[in-house]
Design a protein around this nucleic acid. Sequence first.
DNA 1: CGCGGACGAGACAGACCGGTCTCGTCGATG
DNA 2: CATCGACGAGACCGGTCTGTCTCGTCCGCG
Lengths: 199, 199
Amino acid sequence: MPGPEPKQPTAARERIVDSAYELFSRRGIRAVGIDEVIERAAVAKATLYRHFKSKDELVLAFLQRREDVWTKGTVEAGARGRASSPEEQLLAIFDVFDDWFREPSFDGCSFIKVLLETSDTGHPVGRASVTHLANIRSILRSMAEEAGLEDPDGFAHKWHILMKGSIVAAGEGDLEAAQRAKSIGRLLLDEHRPPVTAA
Amino acid sequence: MPGPEPKQPTAARERIVDSAYELFSRRGIRAVGIDEVIERAAVAKATLYRHFKSKDELVLAFLQRREDVWTKGTVEAGARGRASSPEEQLLAIFDVFDDWFREPSFDGCSFIKVLLETSDTGHPVGRASVTHLANIRSILRSMAEEAGLEDPDGFAHKWHILMKGSIVAAGEGDLEAAQRAKSIGRLLLDEHRPPVTAA
DNA sequence: CGCGGACGAGACAGACCGGTCTCGTCGATG
DNA sequence: CATCGACGAGACCGGTCTGTCTCGTCCGCG
């Protein structure tokens, strides 16, 4: 019996996830083979399959890593760090995007890519993508609540539409996509701002 | 010598493109093999390769078909048929989307899917996707001009962001994505409407 | 010191891929 | 009627994929 699954961050396991992150985020899931992952990680194939029982499980670990690094580390932290007021933080998301879109290594949104590649929301990988996308919206909803906006959930859904639309546009090559989305965002903010109450 | 490429719409060629359309639009490019395409088309493999020199060329033909059927046939014609004024036609795009998102066989935007699957705008297939997406914007620009909106090109880019964002949201399962995008669109329309000139 | 588990290297299996080729048939055309 | 090209069926090839297995090594812990 091969014993229980080692979920501790072994050095080898870490190298595998790092490698998967760089390859999957840039080129997608199907376009990257296991052999390439293990070669870049300098790891034996058996080692990968000791830590992950299938490629799909590795993909799940990659998506979780993406949420930690990108969703929380880049987008949320970046936006919160660039502005003080909640409304400005929401708008600052598109400033973060503007820098991101201009990086030569811009790779798009992994959750969208994996979701469209899977095209089956019943499959674990597809469901995980949907969940990670929903987690982004939950951050947006918190920010909307902090800003005192009306209908924070509806606002989060609409704001997310702007984010996703601009990311796809950036994937087409539109370097101004973030600024376009930001200007639409300002209109949306006006719309969801509660009316000033008479003193 | 196998003679010049027959580009005429032979019966067999038509069946192949039909089959590719149904399979590729639903499940993407990489997930569908040639064998499945020819089986559904009831065609021999050699026949497919007599009409298309590679799978990539078949994908190109599929994308062209998608533009004819979906971009022009469903979206543009649908929007123009549902309203009379150009502004209302632009908004009607999201009414078309609303019906589309609710279809059980909703399959998303093939151009986005193929673009993200390819993730190489240098590759012919990726470049074709970018072009077909740009063709959608050119329809939007025409409508914006007909509506007398300011900055028709900028407007088209922003409107397209709403469209793409809502399609991705629908892919996640948000059935109200079209209505959300439509309400944002109304704000954008207000913004691009030229100020009324004093008589 | 000795043992066991994690590890690297890589062969191997089984499935599937895109693409080529052969062959027998059918239908239109001269 | 004879011919020729398009076609359907399917064998075949080389490559790639995920996943399993073996083997030799090394390191840490008792």
